[in-house]
């Protein structure tokens, strides 16, 4: 039964992947002017455009280009960035690593605090502290990411000078990387991403914990003299945490969106920053590669969430 379920989920994921690649392909081709004009500028001569189109293989019929795009993807060839003069894959490598480390760090911090805040909120639901937590979540969630980032820089980087205002630390030109400095640079961007994430996630988890606290089995536990902390951890958390895994999986695109703004505010050389810059420079190969990557990660995140969820839920596991 379990194997069948995994198979079904995998099939859905692969289908979404195919759809995603197709959509990204046609989106690029729907761009007004086309890639050649983006590279050569709006006033390029038709001859130059035709020559460049031929060089880039854009003179083939659309279905052929579509097939070639697939072929290249399978070879791991994401294209060539004409504005950066490097293959997109090699360009993305270090940016991707920076981003992944930052996002994972921010997400872990957000999950940790969301669970703690959510448990209190669930326990105190409809009493003053619970209402206050709820108000705080809405306020934090409503502050735009770039504003949080700028305020953090203003206070922690400029006013008290605890953290650097941006960049990534280490000497980028020699490639020498100081781990301490690397993470020191990551603190403020990580907080910037984690804050709204925590607000949203803790609110969701708070609702979950609150409805769990109202269930009969929690009443049973109270009636059996189980202490509050043990009820929270051993009974409520155990059941409330299950849907959280799915939500985290589904939040991946949101994390990237927050990441784009955060990285541009902090001048942090990550994927979001690269995306922002390639959008400004109309670097379509890089842009489409990043969009594709975010899409793939989202699909994988959802898949992982579903699978973890089925492992955590004894009822799914045993049926």
């Amino acid at each position: 039964m379990m194997r069948r379920m995994i198979f079904n989920r995998l099939r859905t994921s692969i289908l979404s992947l195919i759809l995603l690649v197709t959509i990204v392909f046609f989106l690029i081709h729907a761009t007004p002017g086309g890639p050649a004009y983006s590279i050569l500028g709006m006033h390029a001569t038709p001859d130059a455009v035709a020559a460049l189109n031929k060089e880039m293989g854009l003179d083939h019929p659309l279905w052929q280009q579509y097939a070639i795009w697939w072929e290249h993807l399978f070879e791991g060839n994401l294209g060539y960035s004409f504005t950066q003069h490097a293959s997109v894959a090699s360009l993305m490598g270090s940016y991707l690593a920076n981003s992944i480390i930052l996002y994972v760090l921010a997400t872990l911090v957000a999950i940790f605090f969301s669970i703690i805040i959510g448990m209190f909120q669930g326990y105190w639901a409809e009493r003053t502290p619970g209402v206050l937590i709820g108000a705080g979540q809405i306020i934090v969630y409503s502050i735009p990411t770039f504003f949080i980032g700028v305020m953090l820089i203003l206070f922690f980087a400029i006013y008290v000078s605890w953290f650097p205002p941006g960049g990534i630390g280490g000497d980028q030109s020699t490639g020498a990387l100081n781990i301490g400095s690397y993470f020191h640079h990551m603190v403020l961007p990580a907080i910037t991403i984690a804050l709204p994430l925590t607000a949203g996630l803790s609110r969701y988890f708070g609702h979950q914990a609150r409805s769990e606290y109202r269930l009969d089995y929690v009443r049973t536990a109270w009636a059996r003299g189980i202490p509050p902390l043990r009820i929270a951890v051993n009974h409520v958390l155990r059941n409330a945490i299950r849907p959280l895994v799915t939500v985290i999986g589904m939040m991946i695109p949101g994390i990237f969106v927050g990441g784009i703004l955060t990285e541009s505010v902090f001048n942090y050389p990550g994927l979001g920053w690269l995306l922002w810059r390639s959008a400004l420079e109309q670097d379509y190969p890089t842009l489409s590669a990043i969009v594709l990557l975010i899409g793939v990660l989202t699909i994988l995140g959802n898949l992982a969430a579903d699978l973890t969820n089925s492992i955590l839920d004894v009822r799914v596991r045993y049926e």
Binding site: Y217, T220, N234, H235, R238
Partner: peptide, 12 residues
């Protein structure tokens, strides 16, 4: 209690 299913923790 009245309802023996919901009165037991489903994941213990």
């Amino acid at each position: 209690f009245q309802n023996p299913l919901s009165s037991l923790n489903p994941s213990l």
